[in-house]
């Protein structure tokens, strides 16, 4: 790891100003930044430690929704009683991510900035070609070991999977990223790779995530995050689904449905086609399974990740049926 200067920010403004300097990066939990610095992927000149800022770690939940400070730890949000009861998918996405230690370190804001686990991205010494690291250098993953790579939202420049679980739940429930005064929908915060996979987030130098807002909804209250992976724990998703449902008064007809996929796409993947196909329908297994196939419309595999195209709709269907059951 190259050496860097360490600055401890004592205000949000100071943090923003410092972060706007060339070569400066914000340091929160460190679970991505320090890891990638050791890999030689990030080489900050200055790290700006924001973990000592006050007032950015609160979680407030009311009838309008939840407001989660950017420095709230994943673990404290996962265990928050109001988040558990009103946004179960958010809590479940959080506690199934990483490990207890990492969740104690990682912040909500930092979690949104988590980088891909693509092994080619993470190993610059052996794989110099990576459009995400060095625009125009090529993609080492295409044609390589692709078992974990994305099947949705890929481009010729990049097939790296967005690895997070939380953001999958956030896009399902229309959460808003607060960058100080500027607000942006989570779905718009994450960018498709297209020809510029180095640009992952709609955030400018000097901007800093300050909070995440999640609007209250009946679908969020009746929601789940289902994560499927090889190992029972401490692993990224092979496929994950955040799902929430609201029924009409009859308790059977779907009034509102939210579906987002994780672990299979280059960004948290809202599956609106599934939602639209099922709204107004009865929640029945065959209907749900058929509609869930719409989740992977347009999917493209790269060999070893072909199973994700089979798996993802099944995860979506199971999740929908699960939230449907738990009336």
């Amino acid at each position: 790891m190259r050496d860097f200067s360490y600055l401890r920010a004592n205000s949000i403004d100071a943090a923003r100003q410092a972060a706007a300097l060339p070569g400066a990066m914000l340091l929160a939990g460190g679970t991505t930044l320090i890891d990638l610095a050791k890999c030689g992927v990030t080489e900050p000149d200055t790290v700006v430690d924001i973990t000592h800022l006050k007032g950015l770690d609160t979680v407030t939940v009311d009838d309008q929704g939840a407001m989660i400070g950017a420095l709230a730890r994943m673990s404290s949000v996962a265990d928050d009683a109001d988040i558990k009861s009103r946004f179960p998918a958010v809590s479940e996405a959080l506690w199934q991510a990483a490990s207890a230690q990492l969740r104690n370190m990682a912040t909500i804001g930092g979690n949104l900035m988590q980088r891909t686990r693509c092994p080619y991205f993470r190993d610059p010494a052996n794989f110099p070609a990576c459009n995400k690291r060095s625009p125009g250098s090529g993609c080492s993953a295409i044609g390589g070991v692709t078992r974990g790579h994305a099947v949705l939202g890929t481009s010729e420049a990049c097939i790296a999977t967005y690895p997070g679980d939380l953001a999958t739940a956030l896009v399902a429930f229309d959460a808003i990223v607060h960058l100080g005064d500027r607000q942006i929908a989570t779905d718009d915060f994450f960018l498709l790779p297209d020809a510029t996979p180095d640009r992952e987030h709609a955030i400018a130098p000097g901007e800093m995530i300050t909070a995440i807002g999640i609007p209250a909804s009946a679908a969020a209250r009746r929601s789940t995050y289902l994560k499927v992976r090889d190992r029972q724990s401490y692993e990224f998703a092979a496929a994950g689904a955040a799902v929430g449902v609201e029924f009409e008064a009859d308790g059977r007809t779907i009034k509102d449905l939210r579906v987002a996929l994780g672990g299979v796409a280059t960004k948290p993947w809202r599956a609106r086609a599934v939602e639209e196909a099922l709204k107004g329908k009865l929640l029945e297994p065959d209907t749900v399974r058929r509609a869930s196939l719409l989740a992977i419309e347009g999917a493209v595999d790269h060999g070893a990740n072909q199973y994700k195209i089979e798996l993802a709709p099944r995860v979506v269907a199971r999740a929908i049926l699960k939230v449907g059951e738990t009336a």
Binding site: V228, D230, L311, V315, A317, R318
Partner: peptide, 8 residues
């Protein structure tokens, strides 16, 4: 799991 193929 018959849908997911995961073995525990």
């Amino acid at each position: 799991d018959e849908d997911f193929g995961t073995v525990r």
